[in-house]
C-alpha cells in the first residue's frame, strides 16, 4: 500500500516536472534570429512604436507625453489588477540595462530577463508575429526615448493567477505565430501584419474564452470591455459597414463617417494610428474590410 503511494507520488512529481519543463519560459535565440547582423534603424523603429501602441499602456496615467514610458497605468481585469511597468531606458527603474536579445524574448516570447513568464496583459501573443528586424528597430528607437526613474509597483493578482509558472500552459495554448486570416495581396499582407501583430487589435476586439485566450472563431466580432465599462464593438462586415476610406480616415482623424469622434481607449489608438503613413492606414482598412461577416 505504502509502496503504491510512493510510486504514485513519484509518477505525480514526474508529470509535474515534465509539465513545468514543457511550459518553461522560452527565450529567443539571438543568433538564429540573426539579431546581431541586423542594421537596426531608430527611424523605422518609430513606425513600429506607433503601430504597436506601446505608449497607450506604458505612459504614466494622465501624461500627455507619449514618449516617456514611465508606467503606472492600472488595468482592472477579472484576474486582478495589473500595473504597467516602467519600460523607459532608465538603467535601474526601466529597461535600459537589457540586451536586444532580452528585449526580443520579452516582446515575442513573454519571458523576462530573469526567466519568468509575463502575464498576457502584455500582448506578446500578438507581438509573437513581429519580424526580427522590427524588434531590433523598435529597440533602437527605445534607446532614443527619455528615461524615467519611476519605481515599479507589483501587480495585485490573487491565487491561483499569481502562480506565473501556470502561464506556460497558457502560452502553449494561445500564443502562436500563425496568422488568423489568409492574405492574398501585398496590401492585405501588410494590413494583416499591422492588425494581427503590431497593433494587436484582436486583443480587445475579439472575445476571450474562459482561460483568457482569444476565441479566433469569433475573430474581431467584438467583446466585453475587461474594465467592465461598455462593450468593445465588433469589426466584421455585418457589424461595421464603413468603407475602407472611412476606416482609414477614422484612424487618421478620429472622425466616424457620421462625424462623431472616437472616445475611450480607441481615442488613444487613433493618436497612434495617426502617426502612421496613409499607406499603412489604408492597409489596415483593407484588412478590416476583408474580415467578412
Amino acid at each position: 500500500m505504502l509502496r503504491t503511494l510512493v510510486v504514485l507520488a513519484g509518477v505525480g512529481l514526474a508529470v509535474l516536472a515534465a509539465g513545468l519543463w514543457l511550459t518553461r519560459p522560452q527565450v529567443v535565440d539571438p543568433v538564429a534570429m540573426g539579431l546581431a547582423e541586423l542594421e537596426a534603424d531608430a527611424t523605422r523603429g518609430e513606425v513600429v512604436y506607433w503601430a504597436s501602441g506601446c505608449a497607450s499602456c506604458h505612459t504614466a496615467p494622465g501624461s500627455d507625453d507619449k514618449l516617456v514610458l514611465a508606467g503606472g497605468h492600472r488595468f482592472q481585469t477579472e484576474f486582478g489588477t495589473f500595473v504597467a511597468p516602467n519600460i523607459s531606458p532608465d538603467p535601474d527603474a526601466g529597461i535600459g540595462g537589457w540586451t536586444l536579445g532580452e528585449f526580443a524574448s520579452a516582446v515575442t516570447k513573454g519571458t523576462s530577463p530573469q526567466g519568468a513568464h509575463y502575464y498576457p496583459v502584455f500582448p506578446y501573443g500578438s507581438y509573437a508575429r513581429m519580424t526580427p528586424v522590427d524588434v531590433a528597430d523598435l529597440w533602437a528607437f527605445f534607446q532614443t526615448l527619455p528615461p524615467s526613474d519611476r519605481a515599479n509597483e507589483p501587480h495585485q493578482i490573487g491565487f491561483p493567477f499569481n502562480i506565473r509558472a501556470s502561464l506556460g500552459s497558457w502560452k502553449l495554448l494561445f500564443a502562436g505565430t500563425d496568422w488568423v486570416l489568409e492574405a492574398d495581396t501585398p496590401q492585405l499582407e501588410r494590413g494583416r501584419y499591422l492588425v494581427e501583430a503590431l497593433a494587436h487589435c484582436g486583443e480587445c476586439h475579439t472575445p476571450r474564452n474562459a482561460l483568457g485566450g482569444l476565441d479566433t472563431a469569433l475573430w474581431m466580432a467584438g467583446a466585453p470591455n475587461p474594465s467592465g465599462e461598455g462593450r468593445i464593438p465588433g469589426l466584421r462586415r455585418d457589424q461595421l459597414d464603413w468603407s475602407a476610406e472611412d476606416i482609414a480616415y477614422y484612424l487618421e482623424s478620429g472622425f466616424t463617417p457620421d462625424f462623431d469622434s472616437a472616445g475611450g481607449e480607441m481615442a488613444a489608438v487613433v493618436e497612434n494610428m495617426s502617426q502612421l503613413s496613409a499607406e499603412d492606414r489604408a492597409a489596415i482598412a483593407a484588412y478590416i474590410v476583408s474580415l467578412g461577416e
Partner: peptide, 21 residues
C-alpha cells in the same frame, strides 16, 4: 487644420465620455 480639431474631440471623449452601451 482639421487635425487639431479632431484631436480636441478625441481628448475630451477619451477621458470624459462614457461608452454608448
Amino acid at each position: 487644420a482639421m487635425g487639431a480639431v479632431g484631436k480636441g474631440c478625441g481628448d475630451c471623449h477619451k477621458a470624459y465620455r462614457a461608452p454608448r452601451n
